[in-house]
């Protein structure tokens, strides 16, 4: 499977993503890679009900995602749009050997976090842990940019940590 794009967005699949990013990334598959979502029956159901009908969507654990994204290619014309809900999940993919060097950040609302979070842009709130995780990603050579829709001017996260 080729990765079309990796995105961090705790709203998962919603209006902006389905209408613009999939076309922009030329993806023909959606993979939600998140242990949290696999375990959250309600959010998992929301994804399953609202995924675009024209495109195959799966919700998998990080371990499964790593296996699928590093294993033998599941068909050359398979271009996957990967969505994680937080930087620690993207970090786990990178540390698990998945090959990518940039991630697009959409909405991060510090959902379900007990740690205090500060707002860095209109769509992004960061906790101390998020900052730590982004720093690790940057050290591993992954460029992290905030862009809600493809036509937005990207904001490099390094300036906001």
């Amino acid at each position: 499977m080729a990765i079309a794009l990796i995105r961090i967005d705790d709203r998962l699949i919603h209006g902006q993503i389905t209408t613009k990013w999939i076309a922009h990334a030329n993806a023909n598959r959606i993979m939600i890679a998140s242990d949290r979502i696999v375990q959250d029956k309600i959010r998992k159901s929301v994804v399953e009900l609202t995924a675009p009908k024209s495109i195959k969507t799966e919700v998998v654990t990080l371990a499964e995602a790593i296996e699928k994204l590093t294993g033998p290619l599941a068909g050359e014309n398979c271009k996957v749009f990967v969505i994680c809900v937080s930087p620690d999940e993207v970090l786990a993919l990178k540390q698990g050997g998945v090959a990518f060097n940039q991630v697009v950040i959409g909405n991060m609302g510090a959902m379900g976090s007990i740690e205090p979070a500060t707002r860095v842009t209109k769509s992004v709130l960061l906790t101390g842990k998020d900052r730590k995780d982004f720093n690790e990603l940057l050290e591993l050579g992954v460029k992290c940019e905030i862009r809600v829709i493809p036509s937005d001017r990207p904001v490099d996260i390094v300036r906001l940590l």
Partner: peptide
């Protein structure tokens, strides 16, 4: 369909 009001309503 699939927007935030929809997803929240679903929950």
């Amino acid at each position: 369909f699939g927007g935030t009001p929809c997803n929240v309503a679903l929950t």
